[in-house]
Amino acid sequence: MAPTASRETYFETGLAVLSSAGYGSLKLSEVCRRLGVTTGSFYHFFRNWADYTDQLLEFWFDSHTRVEVAEVLAQPDPATRLDSLLAYGLSLPYGAEGAIRIWGAIDPKVHAVVSAVDNRRYQLVHDVVSPILGDESARRYASWAVFLMTGYEQTTLTRDVAVLEWAAQQLLESLRREAAIATGAARRR
């Protein structure tokens, strides 16, 4: 067995368990087994299982929403922000996210984190689209994007990232068409 693991590797392993085996398999023994460590190593980093799961959710929120949202918004060019937004959406750990949503359906604390993630991602799309198309269209596209991501996470169909990418491209093409129409109308005035 490996002598130690880092706090971050515990979180990454927890997300990997969620992704590959689902919420029901997220257990201390499985996380330690995958890391090749003893439970003593686990307790070096975490007071108890609840402490770990709280921090795991915070890690998920930080690493897959806060950090990446900031990177998208840091892009100065609107077209580059759109491309970064698409790359962000396609990079999410959808298996883990789907499992976290299932977990959130039975645990109010987890549900609150999932709700915060959804709201932040909605706001991200809104903030990227609003300068291009205005607030009303931004609300529609933000809703569409969140529906697309969460639907992909929850489907029982075979996950096919190429199909998700195609669907996301359709959203972007619709947005770009609407922007071109709005730009043309503004020029004619």
Rank of each mutant, 00 (worst) to 15 (best):
S115C: 13
E97A: 12
T4I: 08
F45G: 02
A2T: 12
F45L: 08
D107N: 07
E136K: 15
F147M: 13
M149V: 14
Q154K: 13
I181T: 09
L15M: 06
A50C: 10
P108Y: 09
K109S: 14
T39M: 05
G40V: 05
V125T: 10
S25W: 07
A16C: 06
V161K: 05
A70I: 09
E153Q: 12
K27Q: 13
V37Y: 00
S137C: 08
A168S: 14
R101H: 08
A138T: 05
E153V: 06
R176Q: 14
A116T: 13
T156I: 14
A116F: 11
A145M: 12
W166V: 15
S84W: 14
V31F: 10
L82G: 05
G89L: 04
E136Y: 06
D77C: 08
H44E: 08
Y152R: 01
N119E: 15
W49D: 04
A21G: 09
G89A: 09
R189G: 15
V31H: 04
R120K: 13
A145N: 13
Y94L: 01
A74K: 12
A142H: 02
V31Q: 01
F11C: 05
V163G: 09
S41W: 06
T39Y: 05
T156V: 14
V31S: 01
A112I: 09
G98Q: 03
Q169F: 07
V72G: 02
M149C: 11
A5Y: 01
T9R: 11
Q123L: 13
V128T: 04
L15T: 02
S91T: 09
V31D: 03
A87R: 11
A87D: 12
A138S: 04
A5I: 02
G95L: 02
L28E: 10
E58F: 14
L28V: 08
S91C: 08
A5L: 02
T158W: 06
Q123I: 07
D160Y: 10
W103L: 01
S6V: 10
N48T: 10
T80F: 11
A105D: 12
L171M: 10
E178P: 00
E12S: 01
L86T: 15
V114E: 07
R120Q: 14
A112P: 07
W144N: 09
D160E: 12
S19D: 14
V17T: 04
A105C: 06
S29I: 13
G36C: 03
P108Q: 06
Q55N: 09
A70L: 08
L164G: 00
V72L: 04
D118I: 11
L92F: 09
A21V: 10
L35M: 00
Y43I: 04
S25C: 11
A185P: 01
R139P: 08
L86F: 15
V17G: 01
A180L: 08
F59D: 02
A70H: 09
H126V: 05
G89S: 09
A112M: 10
V110R: 01
S29K: 13
Y88M: 06
V67C: 07
Y43K: 01
S91R: 13
T39F: 02
E71F: 04
R66P: 03
T13N: 00
Y88T: 05
P108T: 10
T9S: 13
Q170A: 11
L133C: 04
D51S: 03
G36Q: 03
M1V: 11
E58W: 15
A179R: 00
